[in-house]
Design a protein around this nucleic acid. Sequence first.
DNA 1: AAAAAGTATTGACACGGCGTCAAAATTGAC
DNA 2: GTCAATTTTGACGCCGTGTCAATACTTTTT
Lengths: 269, 269
Amino acid sequence: MLCSRPAFETFMTTPKQLELRDRERRILKTALPLVADAGLNGLSMEAVARKISYTRGTVYNHFKNKEEILLALAVQASSTRLAMFQHAVELSTRTRDQMSGVGVACEDFVARFPGLFRVESIVRSEAVWKKTTPARRNLMQTCERDCFNLLGRVIENAITAGDLTLPRGVQPPDVLMALWSLTYGGFNIAASSPDLAKVGLTDPAATIRRNCSALMDGYDWQPLYDATSFNRLRRRVLASLAKNISEPVDDASDASASIDHSRITEAQS
Amino acid sequence: MLCSRPAFETFMTTPKQLELRDRERRILKTALPLVADAGLNGLSMEAVARKISYTRGTVYNHFKNKEEILLALAVQASSTRLAMFQHAVELSTRTRDQMSGVGVACEDFVARFPGLFRVESIVRSEAVWKKTTPARRNLMQTCERDCFNLLGRVIENAITAGDLTLPRGVQPPDVLMALWSLTYGGFNIAASSPDLAKVGLTDPAATIRRNCSALMDGYDWQPLYDATSFNRLRRRVLASLAKNISEPVDDASDASASIDHSRITEAQS
DNA sequence: AAAAAGTATTGACACGGCGTCAAAATTGAC
DNA sequence: GTCAATTTTGACGCCGTGTCAATACTTTTT
């Protein structure tokens, strides 16, 4: 996905190689539901191996440990979200609509790939970094930075276009952090507080939507929120995402370093 | 803490009983750093038992499994935060200051008890609920609801006092959710994205502070943000919290159902 | 087409944590 | 000091991890 491999064509594509790649996809596909509904402990090399009818040893040839699998899933999550954000940005010309579109994409991501969303939270909260390879960690960080930069650019464009004027002392990253916190925090709360309805929050996603709009309005980002046009934009973005973005587990085509770490060097700070 | 036991005085306080209670505190005190720096997997009954110089069996007499320990820690986190929020609210008369004070308290909580904050995220993201007893789960939910209600009341008071007028379609819980998302999401992002500084966020806590103020300003919550008076309020709240709120692990005095579940009934939906 | 070289797969091993339970030790009431 | 009640213990069976030498299979070489 994302950074497409230089068109090398048949870069080592013996039948066996293909089988291995396919198995890697199968491993991830198998692992996702395990993590999604029982957390990191729900994922075991044992269970994955059994489900794909191989021995544990074989799974260990693909991933050094279960944290690597988790991180690989997190990379899928991040890169899928990034693709959706990019797509959403491209669908509009006005900066405010671009950012609103990103919000819609975010909501769509959570709704369509709840497992991947869950994985992201787990990766964030648990101590997985220490056990993973630098290669995959970098992949993850690159993804996150790309995402941050993409949205950062939208905000900067808004400023140069005159749609947005930040008050003294507030920088573009601050605004970005606000929107990011609102959606990330919001969806996390929504996903983990079963009875929000009891305290008056019947439709958390709608609340998050409104809050993001309120914040952008608060910063006077033009054109200000208007229900009708927002909903039109929303439908447009959702339709386009549905057409263009598919289940990420099907294209782990370049999960990068996968075979070559049978014996990986430990050298790293 | 919180709901103090009816002043029964010496309600079963043989020396042994005291020893048991004390041990419960020791268990939690021992467990916290384990969870805090290695996640749920870093916490093992084994390790806890060793550290307090008892056998695993004894620890199992106090907590049915490690998830119960985690949840007990989460309850401490929640109730401590609630106490801090209540304290912050009581320190001001104007509703805007009360809510700003809560923000300060929130920041103070994260700064002073990072382990407890970490525990909260883990409890949220991992599948612990299924393995815990209803009693403790209820304790947790009560705590969270109390917190929600406390802040909800502040917002409602703001409306009746005329400090805040919500636009059509926006309810008090929505505003609450916004502030909650901003802080919860923000501190979580700050805690788990090591290099925010590289993307221009050198002081995440300050950013979160600003964002909350911006949001309240966006809703035109009077009196609007003013740097000088905000900082004065902030210092006042911090000072008072430092005096009045202490390390929570020292007073697990009523960790409720603790001894009586040596053999707990499994009956529950 | 057969042998050699290179890979992938396996299953057994040592280890460590979980949760249970009957037996032993301790406690506190009389 | 005795005895019933409670607490503590350690050993058990189970499951998962991560490693590795031996085996099985591919691919390349001749």
